[in-house]
Write a protein that binds this DNA or RNA. Structure first.
Lengths: 165, 165
DNA sequence: GTCTAAACGTTTAGACCTGAACATACCAGG
DNA sequence: CCTGGTATGTTCAGGTCTAAACGTTTAGAC
């Protein structure tokens, strides 16, 4: 049993008239959905012997296409975590032999990160499981509903992104 | 500069034809928005000398109305984190004098958690700041767009919730 | 009364992240 | 040259979470 967003907003208005509750019904389900989805993905991946942070890292490299190389800065830009977190992810992944780090000639002090054969295997083995699972979960909405939802989310993300961080 | 969800899906299809990408344009913005919003809220609250986990805890108690008391189990149900996390949050909040814990006569081994006067002050001081900020951010969508978005998110949340955890 | 199962809460180990401090490499002017 | 500034990465301290193991209390069967 869980409280709905509408109930939360109503409770604030009842307890504190004047509380600005107009955002609650939009943001509460978004934050909850994200938590449900990421926790579920963590569990799916644990069964495959990998963690979510590492999967994100390997996915970005895999999607880049051959030669599966990006600098640390590029990884940071594509990942929505801090440079410190990327550095730690890289240390773990390198330790496990999934990526290599080497000086990159271009740019200031760039480090070129490259997927190893082992890293490639890991991502091939897990990406279908993860995205297949997500496919099941998104099927709660019809294609028409998804087509309605996607542009709204895109617009909201753009607006929020311009005003934070 | 960040990759759009559509670009991510296209990259997977290009690199791995057959990859099930239909969920990406829905779930990627949801997960990103949640991260942008929670990180931003963390920063807003740090300025007020409180952390997000504690605010969530105090909010649930405050919304319950007088006498601002709930059991640990009720807090867990309303919070989407594990019982262990609630236990740790309570220990921190109790340490800071924001809540009290006492045996609850009803139920098995229930612990009654109650907001103190200090906890009440903290929540009164920060809730308008947090929800006011969220109000600014949700204004990226018109009222009509929000009315379109809310039921879609609700339907999706219900579907996902029934299939995870 | 006694026993057993279920409900409830806490502790602990292991992961991950942020933000700030720090270290290093390149570049452009003087 | 050489020197400050900018771009990059890394390290570290502090904080939070999950999941699993554990301890405790209550209710119900008999």
């Amino acid at each position: 049993m869980s409280t709905t967003a509408a109930e939360i907003a109503a409770a604030w208005r009842r307890e504190r008239p004047g509380t600005p509750t107009d955002s609650i019904e939009v943001f509460t389900p978004i934050v909850r959905l994200a938590k449900l989805l990421t926790d579920d993905r963590t569990r799916v991946l644990r069964a495959a012997g990998i963690d979510r942070a590492t999967l994100d890292l390997l996915s970005v490299l895999r999607r880049a296409g051959p030669p599966y190389t990006l600098t640390t800065r590029e990884l940071t830009e594509r990942t929505l975590v801090t440079a410190g977190a990327i550095s730690q992810r890289l240390a773990r992944a390198e330790q496990e032999g999934l990526v290599t780090r080497a000086p990159d000639p271009s740019g200031h002090k760039a480090v070129a990160v490259t997927l190893t054969a082992a890293g490639h295997e890991v991502i091939e083995r897990s990406v279908d499981a993860v995205l297949g699972r997500d496919s099941e979960l998104v099927a709660g909405l019809s294609a028409e509903e998804q087509d309605l939802l996607i542009p709204l989310l895109g617009k909201l993300e753009g607006f929020v992104r311009a005003r934070v961080g």
